[in-house]
Simulated assay, not measured.
Amino acid sequence: MDLTAPARPPAARTGLVDVPPGHRFAPEIAWLARLGLLDVRPDRTFGPLQPVERAELARALFRYAGADDVAAPSLGMVADDVSAAHPFAQEIGWAVRHRLVLVHADGSFRPSRPARRQELVLALHRAIGSPAPAGRAPFHDVQDWHPSVEAIAWAAGAGVVRGMPDGTFRPSQPVTRQALAVLLRRFDELA
């Protein structure tokens, strides 16, 4: 045994079949799973590269906030395509009421559609009170006219998002389950 070797932090143990301790985002995924922000499948898989549906995003934000808002959605529906009987109606209703995840202009929520990266950043930006960004968005694919530019610039300046190796943010790409874990964890560390 060499006691002079530098100590290495222990690998994060997730208890998930598809997220071994050496996984790049194992600590963030373990944190997300431990808090129960996304459901783990019965076979103990997480699906790190699977997209997060909009209903799942609403549920994750609801759980993260520790919300216990049991108010029934107004008029029996949250959106044209989400009735009060929807399994995530409470969480979607809460996210809509707090303007974290919005209903589309046509009145639909589209709960099973993958959430986009810009939607997650917008939700986090709104959750913290929509602070002004310290600078411009540093990504090649986020121009000053982009509808989410302020939220993306804030998230980049705060260290919540770092972008892709090619200098892009890819705002319209689906949020993966591992990306949700990473961004929520970084957001949590702001406090």
Score class of each variant (00 low, 15 high):
Pro165Tyr: 03
His86Asn: 14
Gly107Thr: 07
Ala7Tyr: 12
Gln90Glu: 08
Pro10Ala: 11
Tyr64Glu: 07
Phe88Thr: 01
Ala5Val: 13
Phe169Lys: 02
Pro171Trp: 03
Arg186Cys: 00
Pro131Asn: 14
Ala155His: 06
His86Pro: 08
Glu189Phe: 06
Leu61His: 03
Gln173Arg: 08
Asp166Ile: 12
Ala60His: 07
Ala67Ser: 13
Leu190Ala: 02
Arg97His: 09
Ala58Val: 02
Leu184Gln: 06
Ala153Lys: 10
Asp106Phe: 07
Gly107Ser: 13
Glu56Met: 09
Arg116Val: 02
Pro9Ile: 04
Asp68Tyr: 05
Phe88Ile: 03
Val175Thr: 03
Arg186Ile: 00
Ser130Gly: 14
Asp39Gln: 12
Val82Leu: 15
Arg113Leu: 10
His23Ile: 10
Ala30Gln: 09
Leu120Phe: 08
Pro165Met: 06
Ile152Arg: 13
Arg63Val: 13
Asp43Trp: 14
Pro165Arg: 03
Pro114Cys: 14
Glu189Pro: 00
Asp106Asn: 15
Ser83Asn: 12
Ala85Asp: 15
Pro27Ala: 09
Arg24Val: 15
Ala12Pro: 04
Arg99Glu: 15
Arg99Ile: 00
Ala156Arg: 02
Arg8Met: 10
Arg162His: 13
Arg186His: 04
Phe139Met: 05
Asp166Lys: 05
His98Leu: 04
Arg34Asp: 13
Thr45Val: 08
Val96Tyr: 01
Gly47Ser: 07
Asp2Val: 11
Met1Trp: 10
Trp145Ser: 10
Gly159Gln: 09
Ala137Ser: 15
Phe139Glu: 05
Arg54Glu: 05
Arg113Lys: 10
Gly159Trp: 04
Gln90Cys: 03
Ser148Thr: 02
Leu32His: 09
Arg54Asn: 06
Ser108Ala: 12
Asp166His: 07
Leu180Cys: 03
Asp144Ile: 04
Ala85Pro: 09
Val103Glu: 06
Arg24Gln: 13
Arg110Trp: 11
Ala67His: 01
Glu119Thr: 07
Ala55Val: 01
Leu124Trp: 00
Leu3Lys: 11
Gly159Lys: 06
Pro165Gln: 06
Leu57Thr: 11
Ser148Trp: 07
Thr14Lys: 07
Leu61Lys: 03
Phe25Asp: 11
Ala12Asn: 07
Asp2Pro: 06
Pro171Val: 00
Arg162Leu: 15
Ser83Leu: 15
His140Leu: 12
Gln50Phe: 05
Leu190Asp: 00
Ala134Phe: 07
Pro114Trp: 11
Asp69Pro: 01
